[in-house]
Amino acid sequence: MNEYLLGLQGRRVLFAYAIVLILFIILPALVLVPISISADDSFVIIPEAFSLRWYEQLVGDPRWRNALVLSLQVAAVASVMATIAGVLGAIGISRASPKVAKVLRLIFIAPIIVPLMVIGVGFYMLYARMRLVGSFFPLCLAHAVLVLPFVMLPVSARLYSIDKRLEWAAASLGAGPYRTIFRVQLPLLAPSIFAGFVFAFIFSFDEVVVAQFLSGPRLETLPRRMWEGIQMGGLEKTITAVTTAQLLLAVVAMLIISIWQRRSATKAVSSK
């Protein structure tokens, strides 16, 4: 249909525009990959010799390594908390009356609408009064709130596409409310829960604004370490190793999600 609407000239322009746009989206992320595996100190995009020394430094240098481990720990705890709360919340909202559901959904999704700076300051004032700034679990809790929407959104979307009558069928067959959740709903939600968990993990792992406010002098997460590194001594090449590793993590996670969702989508669709 596009052929008739646009004509040859139009299609060429559209194609060129699309290519430029796509490059602009992915280049900033990709440009650091070759730099991170080049042997020399300078930032050349096309390296002459390859080496993994920047990755070694990331794991070998205690300050980098501690930041990496801390970030992984915070992301793991925060995304697990957000996943539990988000899945239960999504199921609860799906059972609430439409009016209540509307308000609740807004509240649960607010963390991605409200600016990070505002949330950061808010948590800082709260934690400062409670003397919780610079402690591990309070930081995880704040991150869990931030990443809650990343779990809520895919799980809610999937819940609404699952036929309500599956729940009724389970009940009529003798499964009580808890058993229905564990035997029917959770298995059908699994791909979206995993997707939500991965999004949550990646966002928390990467988050610098709220971490800056709440980590105090003692807790240095990886993004904070990178930020500081850039401010103090300009670009360190270790940063390129960090970003490349993050990129790889994200790509692998997305691949798993898309394969899983495609498989379970064919299952769910054919049952309708």
Binding site: D163, R165, L166, W168, A169, A170, A171, S172, L173, G174, A175, G176, P177, T180, V184, P187, L188, S264, K267, A268, S270, S271, K272
Partner: peptide, 20 residues
């Protein structure tokens, strides 16, 4: 009495089989 304690079999128009 809640549905899961009624012991009544239900057959739905769209079958409502568990896809997983």
């Amino acid at each position: 009495i809640p549905p899961y304690k009624r012991n009544i079999g239900v057959v739905f128009q769209n079958y409502a089989l568990f896809p997983h």
